[in-house]
Amino acid sequence: MLQTLLEQKRAIGAYAADFELPATLTASQWSLIENIVTLLAPFEQLTREICQADALASNVIPSVNALKRLLSKSARSDFGVKTSKNALLEAVNTRFSDIYTEPLYCVATMVDPRYKDRYFAAEVKLQAHEMLQTEMEKASSERSEQTSELQERPREKRARTDDQATCSLFDMYDEILEETLTPQENTQTTTEVQGFLSEAPVARTESPLQYWNNNKSRFPTIAKVAKKFLSAPSTSVDSERLFSATSNVINEKRNRIACDKAEMLLLVKKNLPLLLKNTD
Rank of each mutant, 00 (worst) to 15 (best):
L88G: 00
K125C: 14
R95I: 09
N255T: 09
T235V: 05
N215I: 02
I50Q: 07
Y119F: 15
Y15V: 12
E135G: 01
S141W: 04
N255Q: 08
G80P: 06
A41K: 14
R218D: 14
G195S: 12
D174F: 15
A226E: 01
S63Q: 00
L21K: 11
V193A: 08
A53E: 10
L265T: 07
S217A: 11
A226F: 02
E145V: 08
S77C: 12
A16N: 04
A14L: 11
A200L: 09
R204E: 12
P233C: 01
A226L: 03
P62K: 01
A41H: 13
L40D: 12
P103C: 00
Q164N: 13
M131Y: 10
T187N: 12
E156K: 11
I36L: 07
T101I: 03
S77V: 11
F19W: 07
A14V: 09
S244L: 12
N186G: 09
S207K: 06
K269I: 06
A23P: 10
S244A: 15
D18L: 15
A23G: 12
V124A: 02
L21A: 12
I33W: 06
F43M: 10
I257D: 09
F120T: 01
C259S: 15
Y119K: 13
S58L: 04
A23M: 14
D98I: 02
Y173T: 07
L197T: 02
P233I: 03
L40T: 13
L242N: 08
L242A: 10
V225G: 00
D54C: 11
N86P: 11
A232H: 14
T94Q: 11
A87R: 11
F243R: 02
N278A: 13
L6Y: 00
S58C: 09
P22Q: 03
